[in-house]
Design a protein around this nucleic acid. Structure first.
Lengths: 196, 196
DNA sequence: ATCTTACAAGACAGACCTGTATCGCGCAAG
DNA sequence: CTTGCGCGATACAGGTCTGTCTTGTAAGAT
């Protein structure tokens, strides 16, 4: 039983590892099931036993990407206590990642582009992911007692997704390094009492 | 000669019209040449005479989208004289378009996602487009004598691409309406003399 | 009137796609 | 030892993809 579970996880994880590398780098339609099967050294039937269809595999990949995202996000703000400083730290982490050589943008954005129908299972995972990020930012803004926390969270989300988009379009040498300073400016603007 | 040109343009434009609708709505890999041929009422050979390959068609579609983008952009700031007000007006136009029912995000972002290799002819058009937008914003920032015009332009680009991304992910009911206010805040931050 | 050219329609080739079926192996449980 | 099963390998079915080729037609040019 123990070994059974270990082996099962091993096969499933190998598939998801390969799917992550290929989907992220080349896109969803561009990568066929055969390519994932070949590179992961797995039988095709094994893949289709764990994931009934390619769409299910994509959804599972996006779910795993979601948990990895939150691990990365939490690690970026772990050392910080103050909620307002957490926001700043988060966007410094975004700036760092978006300008790194490994970053190819946001795989959720890419999924939303390739599966535009909101009802698609992959797009549903994307929506849930982005909504949760938005709520997390709004929560920090609320804890920090900033003005209009939901509006600020929306503005910060625009910055974050803009950074991922810049990474995808321009590659490593992009201007997403500005996202930290921009976030600070928007947070600052929501601390002051300007009425507008 | 006159009619020849007229008929040639007509066929070519019908192809590009159909390609625009399908590529924008469903994506590049998801739309086959056969679908474009069928919907545009054009012979396959006619398409391949005007565009040697699908990649060439995609590049041509992106070129046309680029000119349409600039027509839209110029019309949004035509009534404004002051360069700083032009920036604000541009981002109010972005807010309006990104939250409209017709908007499905930025077709250039989608192209960059589906053709990640920077050398791809489609990706090259995307890079040229985004660079030109960036330079245009930087030019306005410079004319407005704002502090660090290039840095401000980068921050504004993040906002704009974030708005398009939100439109693609969330559909018409998204939070890109905040992009106008966010842009104003960033511009304001670059007008003051805070040192940072 | 003939010639050229753009075009529509459709068949076709070869590759690739998703998803299924079959066979054999190795290993763990009973 | 035998039974069950997860797995690898491979072939296959049916469809779709890009790109080519052929045939027939209509209209302008000479």
């Amino acid at each position: 039983m123990d070994t059974t579970v270990r082996r099962e996880r091993s096969a499933r994880d190998r598939i998801l590892d390969t799917a992550s590398a290929l989907f992220y780098r080349e896109g969803y339609h561009a990568v066929g099931v055969d390519a994932i099967v070949a590179r992961s050294g797995v039988a095709k039937m094994t893949l289709y036993r764990h994931f009934p269809s390619k769409d299910d595999l994509i959804a599972a990949y996006l779910e795993r990407s979601n948990t990895e995202y939150w691990e990365w996000f939490q690690s970026g703000i772990a050392a910080v206590e103050d909620p307002r400083a957490k926001l700043v730290a988060a966007f410094e982490a975004v700036a760092k990642l978006a300008t790194s050589a490994l970053c190819l943008g946001c795989t959720f954005q890419a999924a939303a582009s390739e599966f535009p129908e909101l009802e698609h299972p992959g797009h549903q995972v994307v929506l849930a992911h982005k909504r949760r990020v938005l709520e997390c930012l709004a929560g920090f803004a609320r804890e920090a007692r900033l003005r209009d926390p939901d509006g600020l969270a929306a503005q910060l989300m625009l910055l974050m997704d803009g950074a991922w988009a810049a990474a995808r379009v321009f590659g490593p040498g992009n201007y997403a390094g500005s996202v930290g300073e921009a976030a600070r400016a928007l947070i600052e603007a929501h601390a002051s009492m300007s009425a507008t």
